[in-house]
Design a protein around this nucleic acid. Sequence first.
DNA 1: CCTATTTCTAGACGCCGCGTCTCGATAATG
DNA 2: CATTATCGAGACGCGGCGTCTAGAAATAGG
Lengths: 197, 197
Amino acid sequence: MAEDPAPARGRKRSEQTRLAILAAAYELTLEVGFAGVTVEGVAKRAGAGKQTVYRWWATKADVLLEALALKADLTVSTADQGSFEAEVDAFLRDSAALLAVPGVVPVLRSLMAEAQRDTDFRHRFQDGFLTRRRAAFETVVARAAARGDKPVHLTAALAADLVFGLIWYRVLATERLLGEDDITAVRRLLSEQPGEE
Amino acid sequence: MAEDPAPARGRKRSEQTRLAILAAAYELTLEVGFAGVTVEGVAKRAGAGKQTVYRWWATKADVLLEALALKADLTVSTADQGSFEAEVDAFLRDSAALLAVPGVVPVLRSLMAEAQRDTDFRHRFQDGFLTRRRAAFETVVARAAARGDKPVHLTAALAADLVFGLIWYRVLATERLLGEDDITAVRRLLSEQPGEE
DNA sequence: CCTATTTCTAGACGCCGCGTCTCGATAATG
DNA sequence: CATTATCGAGACGCGGCGTCTAGAAATAGG
């Protein structure tokens, strides 16, 4: 599709500076917490000007959102595993692995918090993160439905709400992350047919 | 146990002012959003001095937390309904009703967001709200276990995580609240025995 | 009644980050 | 070499934060 038709005159954006800003924002969030992060502080640590940050990102939350995408590989395993149960298991392990990446949890907390106070960022967060993850999971449910091993009462929307609800509630309201037992229990709960076994 | 032994000299705290501040904070949050609420604004609308607010509450989030407790009756129905399924149903309807109270959703969003950025408030929010609600639900699961109609693979902790996870995820990440279909589906999912029927 | 104590409204104060703006230098294009 | 866009650096006004002071009002004990 149509590349940006602008022939790009003038100086080009510095990729090095971009990465320095993303890294600075990520590290500062871990060190002083999101509330303690200031755009000035990010710029200073990155060796950049404040204007450079404001030129490319609307808020410090947007910087962090991009830093998260850079830090953690956000592609989700939606590969066909043969059964709904196996794919739910794979998805949960994938999510647990992401949460185990150092810094991801505090960054996720900060982003969800900011999404509550800034309506514009809320939409960018939904489009750039939440709905992507959700769509991946719903793919799994849709395939299960086609395959025929999806529990009848379970809609794709509710299954996604339950899975992401569990993950986010753990992150936001508790200190506990996903363990083996959680994955096993959720996998069983979602894939059980009332009448089977 | 030991009442506050202080014989209470001097002028007493004005209950009228307290209520005016709580109401002002609640209303302002709805009108301009939590980010737009300032302590000065709350004091001004309440006809109070800024110092009076700071004397009794640590942050504007604490004011809102108390306002929420005042606004919505937070007692949860944990009455014995005869079966686990019926009690889960009652609990979900109770929660849906709370969310339907005007202003409760934006206030909940604000409080959870603030709990992510302020560690001290996070603990007060957990103690004063989250764990109370959670304990109520776990009572229901414990009774089901005693009664013998709790699904074997379902622990009280996971059941609570799933239920509150769903509710909070809906509030924080979507615009959808709990409907009849959600309540029915969750009730069935949690109370189903793999082998029954 | 008088004094001590506490809360009350009102507002001044310094501090700091926000977001905008200006500046001169530096790359990239034609 | 002229144009254009980015770069680092930092000044600027604005507004809220949290503290502080001042004087009035309420409550208790002596």
